[in-house]
Design a protein around this nucleic acid. Structure first.
Lengths: 222, 222
DNA sequence: CCAAAAGTGTTAGGAGTACACCCATGG
DNA sequence: CCATGGGTGTACTCCTAACACTTTTGG
């Protein structure tokens, strides 16, 4: 079966103004001309799937070395009107300090959109984004992906806001802080963030304890 | 990028003699002639990825309608010496009552092998099996995949043996039974299995409570 | 001094874990 | 009657969830 082509598409998440956003591009060519889609492109001859995803990510956001995990592969024969295209979907988490789209090559067409206010998407991309969100919610509870969306130094309120934005529900402040303390993955810094009111203590992510688990999703499949 | 071909490979698990087994085939053509591999083949023009996996499964085992879930896609440029081949891997769970390989077309070459005694495998298949096992172990703890490896009617000892075979450790009988009772997913039947000693009560899987969760892996990606 | 967000403990209920003996049957 | 696997309950620990007030700062 020779007539299959392979693309890699990527759902790029970030937190803006305490709300979860996805990076979308407006398509400049048919099909779905002018509609929104997630970034993606054809797999090249000499690159692995993950390298292709990293390349797409870098082209759109100019960032490298962020959390990246393969999501799922979609291969319905009718999913692309141009012909038989199997896509391997990835998702990435970009910290709010790395959100300068400006340096990206295709940046003019890229746009952060809140997941609660997604427009209709081209192809089966709405389903891909929904599945990525599902995965992200699940992973939040048993891995440390939450930290990937924050800058190196963050306050407890910011960390909690990430969890609330992704899970879509409020969390009790005292229980949240106790659990984080219990996990021993926060490194209290001797710095305080000026918030306009009472300053908040800054924390770092203590990767030591979680080095082996840090990004199971990336690490496991070799 | 036109020179990519897509295969679907499938890790088929079953329990034999209270031990976890995988179905392997001996390759009849190069590359890796004579070596063991997991079943698989090229994606056809008119079928989805899942349909291809179901077809492979049926060809090897003659069963349909078993638990099937997409595992991961592997696309290292060097993974297949014949050229650029991206494979979408699935894994399936086949109940011990459906293990008649005889009816399968390629059955002569198929063989159940205990995961503890795997031979060297062709391509990157050793990594694929290892990853499938990892996934199975994780899913066992928060889904009902364990039931998929048993016949419709089973004893508590048989169910526990499935958990022990996959997790590779002993479980306390009383705690195991209490947890199952708590989950309310077992339907006690008015039948007893003659074991040679004291007869054991048979149970069914109460899908009602778990209809929506039953096979998250299958259901979620549409 | 007031508004706003930071920070801090206790209690009650549920789940997990460790642990040992009696029962029913076939041979 | 004995060997084998089937079947059952209790106590302790730990995690989770519910819940309200004081502190610090800028304006």
């Amino acid at each position: 079966m020779e007539n299959v082509r392979v693309t890699v598409d990527i759902v790029i998440f970030s937190i803006r103004i305490r709300e979860l956003h996805v990076l979308l591009v407006k398509r400049g060519i048919p099909p779905f001309l002018g509609e929104y889609a997630i970034p993606g492109g054809f797999l090249r001859a000499d690159e692995s799937l993950e390298e292709a995803a990293k390349r797409e990510l870098h082209e759109e956001t100019s960032v490298r070395d962020v959390y990246l995990e393969q999501l799922y592969s979609f291969g319905d024969p009718a999913r692309d009107p141009r012909g038989r295209v199997v896509t391997v979907a990835y998702y990435a988490l970009v910290s709010s300090e790395h959100m300068d789209l400006s340096a990206g090559a295709d940046a003019a067409e890229a746009e952060w959109v809140a997941v609660k206010r997604l427009p209709p998407l081209a192809f089966d991309h709405a389903g891909i984004v929904a599945y990525a969100l599902e995965r992200l919610r699940n992973k939040l509870e048993y891995t440390t992906v939450g930290f990937q969306l924050l800058p190196k130094k963050f306050t407890l309120a910011e960390l909690q806001a990430v969890y609330e934005a992704i899970l879509g529900k409020r969390i009790d402040k005292r229980n949240f802080r106790r659990k984080m303390a219990l996990l021993k993955i926060l490194k209290p810094l001797k710095e305080w963030k000026e918030t306009g009111r009472k300053p908040a203590q800054l924390f770092g992510f203590a990767a030591k304890r979680f080095e082996n688990l840090r990004d199971r999703g990336i690490l496991f499949p070799f």
